[in-house]
Simulated assay, not measured.
Amino acid sequence: MRRRTFRGAVAVMALTTAALIGTAGSALACHSDDNRPHPTPGQATPCAKGTDLKQSDVEFKIVKNRLNISKVNEGVTVTRIVVVGGDDGFNDYTPGKQGLDKAAPWNDLRAPFSRNGHQADLDHWYLCGKKTDKPTETTKPPTTKPTETTKPSAPATSDTSVSPSSTAPAVVPAGNESGTGGGLANTGFDNMWLVWIAALLILGGGGLLALLKFRRKASE
């Protein structure tokens, strides 16, 4: 009985030791010199449903197997960064936890060590989080200014308009078109000969008076 009990105890101890060694070996195999992520052995777990993001949602560069995320696009929130590489796990980063800044930039993100203890190459990486679409901008109708009332413009002066001058013909009074005067309406009868007869009579009378005066002086 004692031998059987002893053998059973040895078997249990051997199984327990093997399990502990396996766990320790697994934990030792997946580790990182970066204290910001959570090194996890095995296959990388996907993002929760509806939280997948695209690499184009951020601005990034990969330099010497190090992932550098410099900027997150507008409307994007990153809640998880997974960097896979090597042969035994992945590094799981959570912004705002374990010393990782809550907002970008995030630099020097890397894969865990391989089982041989060397830094693993970065095989691939992905992001989890949420993205909100930008609200569509409503187009405002163009504001129309009140139409200005048209002011009446001053009449344009034409170059061909004739200004009154001294050379314009004098207005002849009605009834005196022939220049005979009198202000009477012109009936077709020209009385200019009467003026000439009067002038001759005056001249004749003057001459007659001069002649009589001359004879009177001669007779004395």
Rank of each mutant, 00 (worst) to 15 (best):
H124W: 01
C128K: 01
G117L: 12
L194M: 15
S158T: 08
R66V: 11
P142M: 09
V76I: 10
T150C: 10
A185H: 08
G129R: 04
A120G: 03
L67R: 00
A120F: 07
L127G: 00
I69Q: 00
G117M: 10
V172I: 15
I62T: 00
V172R: 01
R80H: 08
S56E: 02
K64M: 09
S163I: 15
G182M: 02
K71L: 10
L67M: 01
A111Y: 03
V58H: 00
A168M: 14
Y93S: 07
P169G: 11
N191I: 09
T180M: 13
G175C: 11
T94H: 13
T187P: 12
R115W: 03
G183H: 06
A156W: 04
P105W: 04
T79M: 10
T167N: 13
T180G: 14
W125N: 01
D190K: 02
K71F: 14
R115D: 13
V82R: 03
N73C: 03
N176M: 15
V171A: 12
A111R: 04
G181W: 10
G89L: 10
L184Y: 12
K64F: 13
A154F: 00
Y126T: 02
A103F: 14
F60V: 06
T149R: 07
T147R: 12
T150A: 15
D88P: 02
Q55F: 00
F60W: 03
I197H: 08
V58D: 00
E59G: 05
F60L: 07
K130F: 10
T136C: 12
K130L: 09
T149Q: 11
L109G: 02
L109H: 04
M192F: 12
P105H: 04
D57W: 08
G89W: 12
A174L: 15
D123Q: 07
G179I: 07
R66S: 09
K97R: 13
K140P: 11
I62D: 00
T147L: 14
E59K: 04
S165F: 04
K151Y: 03
A199Y: 07
V78I: 12
V76T: 06
S161M: 08
A198L: 13
T149F: 04
Q98K: 15
K97M: 15
F189D: 11
P112W: 09
R115S: 13
H124Q: 09
H124I: 05
A156N: 04
L109N: 04
H118K: 15
G89S: 12
S166C: 13
V84S: 02
K102E: 14
V195L: 15
P146F: 05
D121S: 15
N107K: 05
A185W: 09
T157H: 02
T77F: 09
V58L: 00
